[in-house]
Design a binder for these strands. Structure first.
Lengths: 188, 188
DNA sequence: GTCTATAGTATGATAGAC
DNA sequence: GTCTATCATACTATAGAC
């Protein structure tokens, strides 16, 4: 049998970009095939249950990356404005200056909605909890921390959508750099 | 010829719900047909260029409704916190407690992206400008008003996405009721 | 592990009867 | 203005050769 053209990780990386750009319903097997360079039958070798398997692998992989690159650094961070600035920068890197859509958003539309609802909910809650913990650690009482954490999650998702809609290169970056002021405003 | 089953306005109303739920690529002609009760050929009577025509009509109609129900009241509002509270309530009504997705978000994914990019950008800018004008009127300097207006637009889009992702009934409403505090915090 | 070939279905879109 | 019937294409998915 022929040698593998690429590792499964590489395939998934290419699938991720396609699902982010096209959404679940827009990411047809033809587009996924074109993006990976594998014909449909080869994709079915890696993902026996087809598109749903691919999307699941994509979601799991991105979830793991988000944990490592955004959540864990935040959990280990000391309570300071600098930590929030680093958090913002990690988000900028993770979402490629806002040019990569969030799968948690993309997979709540169309046919993907029911399939991935639970995973999406879990990931969003993790982000919110992580922010709330940090803010409590920073001295806010639990109620204030919860409201601010909600604002934080909303800001990330909203900035991604608005960046996409406005098409201004620097929009997402500027919105994220506003995060520290949004969550821990300096006293006026 | 048989009498029309319904006015074009009624047809569009039903199309709106379908595009919001399924996105552009997920809103297949079969689903649009089912939602309206018209067979595909009848839909083509109303919208000769097919799905693209339907989506355009949907986007234009929703844009007009948003102008009337959200933008114009805000433009005529006096500079006060109460006006912001009314603005938030108008958003809650417009987006049906968060259960209706924003087409500006939905149409920036998949095949719709290039087609509607300009319209989406225009609508988002209108909302941002409207908020910035209000905040300047309320006494903020132009730079601060611009930053806060950006936060406002992001908050609306982000709250819609996060509401959908978390599936908590009251999420969007609570996030919108937080808007006045977000944009015009009471002095501590 | 990758390919060609193809099955069966769904898609967007039309023609033409009434 | 609505319908049945249909087209060509694209879709997800699979079988089988190498």
């Amino acid at each position: 049998m022929p040698p593998p053209l690429m590792q499964k990780d590489e395939v998934i990386t290419k699938l991720i970009a396609t699902f982010r750009r096209w959404g679940y319903d827009g990411a047809t097997l033809s587009r996924l095939s074109e993006a990976t360079g594998l014909v449909k039958a080869s994709l079915y070798h890696y993902f026996p249950k087809g598109k749903q398997d691919m999307a699941r692998a994509v979601l799991d992989t991105v979830h793991l990356q988000f944990q490592e690159q955004v959540i864990q650094p935040m959990q280990q961070a000391e309570a300071s404005r600098e930590s929030l600035e680093a958090f913002a920068q990690n988000l900028i890197d993770f979402y490629m200056e806002g040019n990569a859509s969030c799968l948690l958003e993309v997979f709540t539309l169309g046919s993907a909605r029911e399939i991935f609802a639970e995973s999406v909910k879990g990931s969003l809650e993790k982000l919110k909890d992580c922010l709330a913990d940090f803010l409590e650690k920073s001295g806010y009482d639990p109620e204030t921390a919860a409201v601010k954490a909600r604002r934080g999650v909303i800001a990330v998702q909203g900035a991604l959508v608005t960046h996409r809609g406005l098409g201004e290169d620097a929009f997402f970056g500027e919105a994220m750099k506003d995060l520290p002021d949004l969550l821990m405003p300096r006293d006026p």
